[in-house]
Design a protein around this nucleic acid. Structure first.
Length: 419
RNA sequence: GGAGAGAUGGCUGAGCGGUUGAAAGCACCGGUCUUGAAAACCGGCAAAGGGGCAACUCUUUCCUGGGUUCGAAUCCCAGUCUCUCCGCCA
């Protein structure tokens, strides 16, 4: 959520930053609404003040007048509320402002590669896609999932299911033991307030799976990412400075409608309605967001280092960033079958953007109440990690070598092969 | 699902129609003392919004939304959440 005062004082900067995010919305209306809003507030408050005086005087002869004023106040308050609501609706649907070092661009083509890591393996055969490998092993079944559930779901069997579980456990252990994150097993549903807090609502409602609930005052959603729940752990709270930074990690299923991506990645496990993801969330003093972003990105990429998978770090452009982000690094892993890097993690600093929506604050050293900084990142997407292991560690006969760091998590199994 | 109890500032907790934005304690910040710290003592300390260059000032807020009243944290109605007991159940 944007601060109207900041917008007012720096409208041109605000305008150009929002524009850089490919929002075409006539922003000038914000100024109009703000002016109108403040005018009505002024009117209302002056009447309220007079009314208060009457009440304080306890002068019975003025009581009638006071009653009239109440009616007037009600009317103005109603008008004011309409204006305020319109203003808030606009402000809450505008994305965060990108930091100055974020490359300008309309999509991923403008992303800036920071660095490549690891070595791309040369195969002496034509590497297969993960879904070919999985189906040959009879350990992935997309057809069955489409019968029981629908498209973009999958059954994972046997040793491949074990591998998926191992990946998740390995990641959590790494983050808790080496990177200072605390493990959480959170609810997998979020209420309206939480969805708003992290920025999934109101703008991206049609990407969310909503749970049907009898009580229509109550809305619940399956989490599209654990970020929603983990970040909202500080919603409406005043965090004690000495408890910062807060670093938490959770492995959860994530649910997304993937509306608008019809025909994209329809084959395989790349883009599913349900997938596991290990999520990192940091809650920090707002001045420390950028340091924390570097730290978080390192924590995430450490996983790929340990798995010995080739990847690259990319700085996203203004057009490719998520709604709440002010700066985002993507980590992209090499997929031999596609002969390109694919996103496996996205680490974002949201600055105070989410904290404003959540009313999540702390008292700084000067004893002022200020908004927290929030960051989130995948550490990593489990499904896509599974894919990348299958593809990068495949052998000519269709088996999969288990990366060494995962073997302790798989009863020391070193290879998955056809039964 | 049935029966009760509750929701007040960062926290604990008083207040139950009119100088109550709200006692007290804790926490926090500043100071005195101390070689330093602790303790003790003194002082400060809610948020959001409006107006003002500023000092400052005004409005709103005691779970949420309605209502009664000149006036509501306090009274009435509806809802949400939390806790306790009973039932059912992983």
């Amino acid at each position: 959520m944007h601060n109207i005062k900041d917008i007012r004082n720096n409208f041109d900067v605000f305008k150009s930053k929002i524009k850089s995010r490919n929002v075409n919305f006539k922003l000038d209306i914000i100024i109009d609404l703000d002016l109108k809003n403040r005018k009505l507030i002024k009117e209302k408050e002056s009447l309220e003040n007079k009314k208060k005086e009457i009440s304080k005087s306890r002068d019975k002869t003025l009581f009638v007048k006071s009653k009239e004023m109440s009616k007037k106040i009600d009317k103005i308050a109603k008008d004011q509320l309409i204006v305020k609501k319109e203003l808030d609706e606009i402000l809450s649907s505008l994305p965060n402002l990108p930091l100055d070092d974020v490359p300008l661009g309309i999509d991923e083509k403008s992303n800036k590669e920071i660095k490549k890591y690891g070595e791309i393996k040369k195969f002496d055969f034509n590497p297969k896609s993960h879904y070919e490998i999985g189906e040959n092993l009879k350990m992935l079944d997309f057809d069955l999932a489409s019968i029981t559930t629908g498209s973009r779901f999958v059954f994972v069997y046997d040793k491949l299911a074990l591998l998926e579980r191992a990946i998740s456990n390995f990641m959590i252990d790494t983050h808790t033991q080496l990177n200072g994150y605390k493990e959480i097993s959170p609810p997998l549903m979020a209420n309206l307030g939480s969805m708003y807090g992290t920025g999934q609502l109101p703008k991206f409602e049609n990407d969310q799976f909503e749970i049907k609930i009898e009580n229509k005052n109550e809305r619940k959603f399956l989490i599209p990412t654990a970020e929603v729940i983990l970040t909202n752990m500080v919603k409406d709270t005043m965090v004690n400075l000495k408890n910062l930074p807060i670093r938490v990690v959770a492995s959860t299923p994530c649910f997304r409608k993937e509306a608008g991506s019809y025909g994209k990645d329809t084959k395989g496990m790349i883009r599913q309605h349900q997938f596991y993801k290990v999520e990192l969330v940091s809650i920090v003093e707002n001045s420390k967001c950028l340091d924390e972003l570097e730290r978080m990105t390192k924590s995430a990429s450490m996983i790929l280092d340990k798995l010995k998978l080739p990847y690259r770090k990319v700085l996203l452009s203004t057009g490719d960033m998520g709604f709440s982000a002010e700066k985002t690094y993507d980590i992209e892993v090499w997929l031999p079958s596609e002969k390109k890097y694919r996103e496996i993690s996205s680490c974002s600093s949201c600055g105070t953007f989410q904290a404003r929506r959540m009313k999540a604050r702390y008292k700084n050293k000067e004893n002022e109440t200020v908004f927290l900084g929030t960051l989130n990142g995948s550490g990593l997407a489990v499904g896509r990690t599974l894919i990348s292991i299958m593809e990068n560690y495949q052998t000519k006969d269709g088996s999969i070598i288990i990366p060494e760091v995962l073997r302790p998590y798989m009863n020391n199994l070193d290879k998955i092969q056809k039964n």
